[in-house]
């Protein structure tokens, strides 16, 4: 049983630079910010280390931080330029009964995060969903295709804050 602070210290000692800050002023949950390219190694360590044993990934969710600047595109729609997309990892140890939340932030224009699919198989569909909804590319994912939206959906990523519904999908009117 370890608190987020203890886990943060262990990680900081082990990975140094790759670990960002511990955000704990928010109510109810503290978050460890880590580097998107190192997340797989960090997760592997968290899973395999004896006294951490995070053997379960409860949840993986993409979030649009919407912190870029707002610009108008050629059609007059407001879109976001720059800023970040984030991925939250809620980990849990079923044997030691402690939890931790990790967060990675990645560039909105070219969102790339290392995949944790090989560490927890459950991440497979979660990552596909985050890709489907936010367009976050998980590197080394074996089958990163859309999951809830149609496989040939070309109008972008629906849960981004600046998403616009297309007029037509294959000749069918979308907003009805």
């Amino acid at each position: 049983m370890k608190t987020s602070e203890e886990i943060f210290n262990i990680l900081k000692e082990k990975f140094g630079e790759a670990i960002g800050e511990l955000v704990s002023d928010k109510p109810a949950e503290s978050v460890i910010v880590v580097s998107p390219m190192e997340i797989d190694k960090i997760c592997l360590f968290l899973r395999d280390e004896k006294d951490l044993e995070f053997n379960s990934l409860m949840n993986l969710s993409g979030v649009d931080d919407a912190n870029g600047e707002k610009v108008k595109d050629e059609n007059g729609n407001e879109i976001l330029k720059g800023g970040t997309l984030s991925v939250y990892y809620h980990l849990e140890s079923i044997s030691l009964k402690h939890k931790v939340t990790l967060k990675v932030s990645t560039d909105r224009e070219n969102p790339e995060v290392a995949s944790v699919e090989e560490i927890w198989r459950t991440a497979d569909w979660h990552e596909r969903e985050a890709f489907d909804m936010y367009g976050i590319k998980f590197l080394n994912h074996h089958n990163l295709i859309r999951i809830l939206m149609p496989y040939d959906w070309e109008a972008g990523y629906p849960l981004r804050k600046d998403y616009q519904n297309p007029e037509f999908y294959k000749g069918m009117k979308v907003p009805y």
């Binding site: 928010k26 109510p27 109810a28 949950e29 978050v31 409860m58 949840n59 969710s61 979030v63 939250y88 809620h90 939340t101």
Partner: peptide, 22 residues
């Protein structure tokens, strides 16, 4: 609610039902 985030979960008949709310 105040600014913040929460991941809360309950034991649904099918398993762990979690809500991640920001």
């Amino acid at each position: 609610p105040p600014v913040g985030q929460i991941y809360a979960r309950v034991e649904n008949p099918r398993g762990e039902l979690g809500y991640f709310i920001i």
